[in-house]
Design a binder for these strands. Structure first.
Lengths: 199, 199
DNA sequence: CCGGTACTGAACACGGTGTTCAATATCGGT
DNA sequence: ACCGATATTGAACACCGTGTTCAGTACCGG
């Protein structure tokens, strides 16, 4: 016996459950999915489900966490945002994330889009805010205040991005990642510059 | 007997139920509120509730409809948006709506803010989109296309506004209506101009 | 004071949740 | 190939919220 009781089985079971939830979310939306639905789809016993997750929400959050890891990993291997002169608003996360969404379409459509529950929206907001903060925070002069606070500018940027991403996903990618990225920048960059008094 | 069977009682009862729901939403958030909670708070019998509304969602939507009426009414009596030269992006709805939200703080906090359920978010988006479309649609030249489509620009504007409104409400009005309105314009107007090729 | 309408509240069937537990299956190591 | 440990199973259960039904009661307008 190994001290680590983690069979390969538990990983397999968790995967089955996560996959079943995603399929069902794409079909009915999160709220309508029942634990019974999930375990039927995954061919897993009821008590097994509750052995792994406290409830449906925790299962969803665990899936979201997987997505987050994937994303962070993808961002780290993407071109860094330190290129170009300081003071320029690059929003480097944007194009990388649109690409990532296209690659993991099923996952993103289920979780990020309209289908995902309210629980997830909040987490997504958090994840995106962390990403954007890393880009915007270095640009503000530490000295004086800005026309709009960094916090509010972050909130604004993340909301705009989230809205565009959701629209892109829910409309079956009606344009290329480069185009939707250009749209995002066209709309937000001028406002961000004005809000943080850049350039 | 009047042909219209509508007693004053039914209006009173509907009001009691709507009020009870709002109070409870402010306390626990929509999802956590139970029909039993509502009828206890309103001192109304269970079957009375179901005599008036199909379910909890319909009650909420009826409240939202009341809010919509109030808002439309307030907008009509506000200074019209046709002032200033054509081609100028005025976004006249914004300040009026921040004021309206401050006047009906309880209602807005319950419905528009984080507490409101997912059902409502969608409706709010619709209502706001109608408002904004009325302002932006006349500005685009009917001839050629724009760098960003009107639909996407609308989506963007509404999301940004909704995010700021929610933030303002959920943070207990940390600044005046005029200030948050100025913030909104600072952030969005430059992007809208660029997106629709105005000025 | 009467006819009609609105309200009451208990009882019910239904469906989803999360727990329990004894039986069974499967893995890893030797 | 076998054993001990661990993971999984699925039925049974208590609990809670939903939405319906219905006989009885309160209330309004005329």
């Amino acid at each position: 016996m190994t001290a680590r009781g983690e069979d390969r089985r538990v990983q397999r079971t968790r995967g089955l459950l996560q996959n079943a939830l995603i399929e069902l979310m794409l079909e009915k939306g999160y709220e309508a999915v029942t634990v019974q639905d999930i375990i039927d789809r995954a061919n897993v016993g009821r008590s097994t489900f509750y052995g792994h997750f406290l409830d449906k929400d925790r299962l969803l959050l665990s899936t979201l966490e997987s997505l987050r890891s994937l994303l962070i990993q993808a961002m780290d291997s993407a071109p860094s945002s330190s290129e170009g002169g300081p003071g320029e608003v690059r929003l480097g996360f944007s194009l990388a994330m649109f690409h990532h969404a296209r690659e993991h379409l099923r996952l993103y459509r289920a979780i990020v889009g309209r289908q995902g529950g309210a629980i997830v929206q909040q987490q997504i907001q958090r994840i995106l805010t962390d990403l954007v903060r890393r880009e915007l925070a270095p640009l503000v002069k530490p000295g004086a205040g800005t026309p709009v606070s960094l916090e509010v500018t972050l909130l604004y940027t993340v909301s705009a991005f989230h809205a565009l991403l959701t629209w892109w996903l829910d409309h079956d990618l009606p344009c290329s990642a480069e185009e939707i990225d250009r749209t995002f920048r066209t709309l937000t960059v001028p406002g961000i510059k004005a809000a943080l008094e850049l350039r």
